[in-house]
Amino acid sequence: MAVPTSYYVVLSAAMFCAGLFGILTRSNALTFLMSVELMLNAANVNFVAFSFHHGNLTGQTFALFAMALAAAEVAIGIGIIVTLYRNFGGTDVTIAREMRW
């Protein structure tokens, strides 16, 4: 017996809201990155759930590419965090207030 699609979508909504809460409350850049990943993966859960719902594999393939894009995003994000740490001595996003330094 398959799990109903709506349950997956509710799980995805919970993941998205957890990520949103993390972005709104934390000031550490690494926690930011984790929260963004959580929101991105919530979208992936939706893709896979609706792929199953419609019996079409487009959603699953798209989720695969979304994961690849997430990897690229993390690579650049961690690079930015390293630069942030070097220039400001920490990863608090509220300290860095300028785009150039």
């Binding site: 709506s6 509710v10 909504a13 809201c17 809460f21 709104l24 199953f52 019996g55």
Partner: peptide
């Protein structure tokens, strides 16, 4: 804000007439 958004989304999704999954 986060909990409110979750409640709205969850109620919307559970009330939506999604129907049976076609599956593979």
């Amino acid at each position: 804000v986060a909990v409110g958004l979750f409640v709205v989304l969850a109620v919307g999704v559970l009330a939506a007439p999604l129907g049976a999954a076609a599956g593979f």
